[in-house]
């Protein structure tokens, strides 16, 4: 039986890791739930953002927050352009999965060509910083990622729940033709949302660069976990994405602490299958 402190430490790192999962899941969940487009390229774009943050920081000494601002703007434009392609060719839900899988492969190869398949680590002044609570370590950057993830999830939720545009987006997701008949410009709103989703991938990427070790193949390790997070959290539900991320993050960390790190990936999908089988009311 592992020591109690170990379990507490696992709980903290699980919650913090869950924040990052939630951040990655947010954009995917919104575009899947509200636009009916499954964007597998989301993970690739997040990793691209991570490499850009690292590269701008190490090669040009550009601080990660400035890199973040540039990435958010550029990724928003990419999201709008991607949606233009989806609209132009009337891409279906299934079709979007295939196309964005292609995008993910292309982005992975591009990263590999430019920055090679070597592991990259962004060494910043804050990289090792943490503060101590009792016997527990709370790493600063992971905490920052968690706070940003929670903030974005709550803000996005409130925006969808209370803002006129947020309500209009939900109406479009339920019945686009009728929403249009009441004066909602469905096209314009879906461009906006697609841009926001891509920008969220960019924000997630900045934190991935600060926290994790980068390798091009990371894209594929996230897909499984974050898919589970999105489905557990319900499509199009920002708070659910965060909660799902924390749930999976904690379960993984606990598994690593109690059993063996190799078992961790098994947890997210076992959890997903169990939840889908028993379907509690909040799913």
């Amino acid at each position: 039986m592992p020591h109690l402190t170990l379990l507490e430490q696992a709980l903290i790192s699980g919650i913090l890791a869950g924040g990052l999962y939630g951040l990655l899941a947010l954009g995917l969940s919104l575009s899947w739930g509200l636009l009916r487009l499954v964007n597998l390229g989301h993970f690739a774009m997040a990793l691209l953002a991570a490499y850009l943050t690292w590269y701008l920081g190490t090669a040009f000494a550009i601080a990660p927050w400035w890199a973040g601002v540039a990435i958010v703007v550029a990724f928003f434009v990419y999201g709008v352009a991607l949606h233009w392609v989806f609209m132009r060719f009337r891409v279906t839900e299934m079709g979007s999965m295939l196309i964005t899988f292609g995008i993910a492969v292309i982005v992975e190869s591009t990263i590999q060509t430019i920055w090679t398949a070597d592991f990259r680590r962004y060494e910043t002044a804050l990289a090792g910083a943490s503060f101590v609570v009792g016997a527990l370590y709370v790493p600063m950057l992971n905490l920052a990622a968690f706070v940003v993830a929670a903030l974005l999830a709550v803000l996005t939720w409130a925006w969808l729940r209370f803002a006129t545009i947020g309500k209009a987006l939900r109406a479009c997701a339920e019945d686009a033709p009728i929403a249009t008949a009441f004066g909602i410009n469905h096209r314009a709103l879906s461009f906006l949302l697609s841009g926001i989703c891509a920008a969220y991938a960019g924000i997630a990427g900045v934190f991935i660069a600060l926290i994790a070790t980068l390798a091009p193949s990371e894209i594929w390790t996230w897909i499984g976990v974050v898919f589970a997070v999105v489905i557990i959290g319900r499509l199009g539900n920002p708070i659910g994405a965060l909660a799902g991320g924390i749930l999976i993050g904690v379960c993984e960390a606990m598994t690593m602490a109690v059993a063996d790190p190799a078992w961790a990936p098994l947890v997210s999908f076992s959890l997903l299958i169990a939840l889908l089988l028993f379907r509690p009311r909040w799913i």
């Binding site: 309500k167 939900r170 339920e174 019945d175 009728i178 909602i184």
Partner: peptide, 18 residues
Amino acid sequence: RLFAGMSVQENLEIGAYR
């Protein structure tokens, strides 16, 4: 064809979107 997952009040608000 109501927006079934939205409240009565939200449905009315969408009516006044224009």
